[in-house]
């Protein structure tokens, strides 16, 4: 089986509920394991939230394009936006997951979770747009 989904949403946090619902429906139809569905939804949320916060355009003023492709072996996700160049895997700070509670910084966790939960994660700048591609293998 193979299926795909392309969504264009405004760069607003509230727009994300519809994305989660659409991706979870695709996951059910494609029979994803719970950890695959969780990882894909989380990766999309973290990356899209990053674009809204750091993309450089006013909230709601631009669009984020999301593409999900499901095959027998993997779920592949791409997040594209026309904001300023930003490579989340190099430009975002790494959280100190060894720190004690008093020293632990708030935040910085999203990209770390994506790196660990997804099997592949890469960034490229192409045609004046940011492209983040992530893959979760299904076995």
């Amino acid at each position: 089986m193979s299926a795909s989904l392309t969504l264009r949403v405004p760069n607003r946090i509230e727009a994300f509920a519809g994305v989660t619902e659409a991706v979870e429906t695709l996951g059910r139809e494609e029979d994803w394991a719970p950890d695959v569905a969780y990882a894909v939804v989380l990766a999309l949320e973290e990356l899209a939230t990053n674009v809204v916060r750091h993309g450089g355009s006013e909230e709601g003023a631009s669009e984020i394009e999301i593409e999900v492709v499901s095959t027998d072996t993997e779920a592949r996700v791409e997040v594209r936006d026309g904001g300023k160049p930003f490579d989340p895997f190099h430009d975002a700070p790494e959280p100190d997951t060894e720190a004690v509670l008093e020293d632990r910084k708030i935040g910085g966790l999203g990209v770390h979770l994506v790196r660990v939960l997804m099997d592949e994660a890469s960034y490229r700048r192409e045609g004046g747009r940011n492209h983040v591609t992530m893959v979760k293998r299904r076995s």
């Binding site: 959280p95 997951t97 060894e98 004690v100 632990r104 966790l109 979770l113 660990v116 939960l117």
Partner: peptide, 12 residues
């Protein structure tokens, strides 16, 4: 898994 990856099992 998400709490463990975040290292929260070491602080809480």
């Amino acid at each position: 898994s998400v709490f463990e990856i975040s290292g929260f099992n070491r602080i809480i």
